[in-house]
């Protein structure tokens, strides 16, 4: 059975997740990437406690659409900013690609989880987004911070709160 989570997340919500598991995320996601991180550093323009960050920036919305195509960007580019945000209560991040050892340590310390969604499936992912509101830095255009409401957004646990990493485990299991 696929697990489901919804923000705000508690330590026990996060501790129940294991690297490699599929997880459906509902509720609120905060979308922010490079330029927004550079602006807010360790002081995001919303209460980050228990929340989920989604590293992404959409294509422009067509008239009448909730949002354009939207998918994950490379999470590693946000690594320098992440430990401070985890210390402030950030519980989950959604992106693609690997994370630094510092981020993994901060995730273990603060009980947080890193989820991935496939890159390049942005038309599909946009279908799970029911509402999108710019809440800060509209001047950043596609990189503005947006609050998204999602239903059953399909993710995979890449790094769990114990530091188990699907990129290492998966490669080990399938390398010949």
């Amino acid at each position: 059975m696929t697990k489901k989570i919804e923000a705000p997340l508690t330590d026990s919500d996060v501790e129940a997740l294991r690297a490699g598991e599929s997880v459906l995320v509902s509720g609120k996601l905060y979308m922010a990437r490079d330029a927004a991180h550079k602006k807010f550093k360790d002081n995001p323009p919303f209460d980050i406690k228990g929340q989920i960050l989604f590293y992404a920036s959409p294509t422009p919305s067509k008239p009448g659409a909730i949002i354009g195509s939207v998918g994950p960007t490379t999470a590693g580019r946000m690594d320098a900013f992440t430990p401070a945000l985890l210390d402030k209560g950030l519980k989950a991040m959604i992106g693609k690609g690997e994370r630094s050892a510092e981020v993994v340590e901060a995730m273990k310390k603060n009980k947080a989880v890193y989820l991935v969604v496939p890159g390049g499936v942005a038309a599909l992912l946009s279908k799970y987004i029911k509402q999108a509101t710019v809440i800060a830095y509209p001047e950043l255009g596609p990189e503005a911070v947006q609050a998204l409401e999602v239903v059953d957004f399909p993710t995979i646990v890449a790094i769990d709160s114990e530091g188990n990493d699907i990129f290492e485990i998966g490669k080990k299991n399938y390398s010949r």
Partner: peptide, 21 residues
Amino acid sequence: RQIIKNAEIAKKEKMPLCQDT
């Protein structure tokens, strides 16, 4: 499977395949 499904949606609805166009 998600990648293939994405291609179907993108083509049918003329939505970008990936947000990085």
